[in-house]
């Protein structure tokens, strides 16, 4: 049976991994398992922004590159290990803007090499993205410059779903950005609260919130796997946990202490059993 740690073992160093933000079913358990595995040089995509899970991966030295539209702990403020790594020059950051990330993934969903997006022209984001192009709209009568974005195909989509069924489908409700990253990625690795009998695709009420097993490489049960993020209407955001993290992770030493307590202690426990 798969566990978060066995899922993490499937992600090689250097992999391009897409993560949803704190308000959209991040698998914090899988991020912690990647830290325990000692993953290195991951290239992380925030879909479309990044939060808690990405900050701990950066702090633990798992990340070489980050493409995202923002990194924040929400009410708890700036993401401390991201900020420190940027200062130290240990990560390469590619700034984007939310709809550009979605559009690049949607291009991969369709299997086309690029898609256009309005806006962005005049932003310094564009000036720092040599991989984004501006062309003249070929269908316009007059002048109409428009941005073309290259398709983005992550190696893995990593997220937490409410449940999986016997057929390997997973259910995320309306958080369809998880479906977008699952569709766009080569494979999705998903933690779930529980596995239930039956097949979501045979139930009209569940099918629209499901992601087809076609896209899912492996599923592991991780109860409260999104914690401290909220899980739809099942459990709420744990603001105290994030505030405690934000306080401790202000310093490298504090972050290490937090990591020992919240992430690495499990390795010792498992080894002792």
């Amino acid at each position: 049976m798969e566990t978060p740690d066995s899922l993490a073992a499937r992600v090689p160093d250097g992999a391009l991994v897409a993560l949803p933000p704190d308000n959209s079913l991040p698998s914090v358990e899988l991020a912690k398992a990647l830290v325990r595995r000692g993953a290195r040089a991951l290239r992380v995509v925030g879909v479309p922004v990044s939060g808690f899970a990405t900050d701990i991966l950066i702090g633990a030295g798992c990340v070489a590159e980050l493409e995202t539209s923002a990194v924040s702990l929400g009410e708890a403020g700036f993401a401390p290990r991201f900020t420190a790594a940027l200062k130290a020059g240990t990560i390469t950051l590619r700034d984007a803007t939310c709809p550009a990330i979605h559009t690049r993934l949607q291009a991969s969903e369709k299997g086309v090499p690029f898609m256009p997006l309005r806006g962005i022209i005049g932003s310094d984001i564009l000036a720092h993205r040599p991989d984004w192009k501006v062309i003249a709209n070929p269908f316009a009568a007059g002048e109409d410059p428009i941005v073309l974005l290259p398709a983005l195909q992550p190696d893995f989509a990593l997220f937490h779903a409410v449940m999986a069924d016997e057929a390997g489908n997973v259910w995320v409700g309306r958080r369809r950005e998880c479906a977008t990253i699952a569709h766009a990625s080569r494979a999705a690795l998903v933690t779930v609260e529980r596995v239930v009998p039956g097949n979501f695709l045979e139930d009209e009420r569940l099918a629209s919130g499901a992601i087809n097993a076609t896209y899912i490489e492996a599923v592991a049960v991780a109860e409260r796997g999104a914690r401290p993020a909220a899980l739809l209407d099942e459990y709420g955001f744990d603001a105290a946990y994030v505030a405690d993290y934000a306080r401790m992770a202000r310093s490298e030493a504090g972050f290490r202490e937090w990591l020992d307590r919240e992430v690495l202690a499990r390795t010792a426990k498992v080894a002792a059993e």
């Binding site: 479309p48 923002a70 700034d95 803007t97 939310c98 962005i120």
Partner: peptide, 27 residues
């Protein structure tokens, strides 16, 4: 400016990032 101060990408104070502003402001 939601990027930061100093050299790109915010070597002075780094702000969280641009979110959807580069699109929303124009559309």
């Amino acid at each position: 400016n939601l990027i930061g101060t100093g050299d790109w990408p915010g070597t002075g104070v780094r702000f969280p990032g641009s979110f959807g502003s580069a699109f929303m402001y124009m559309m």
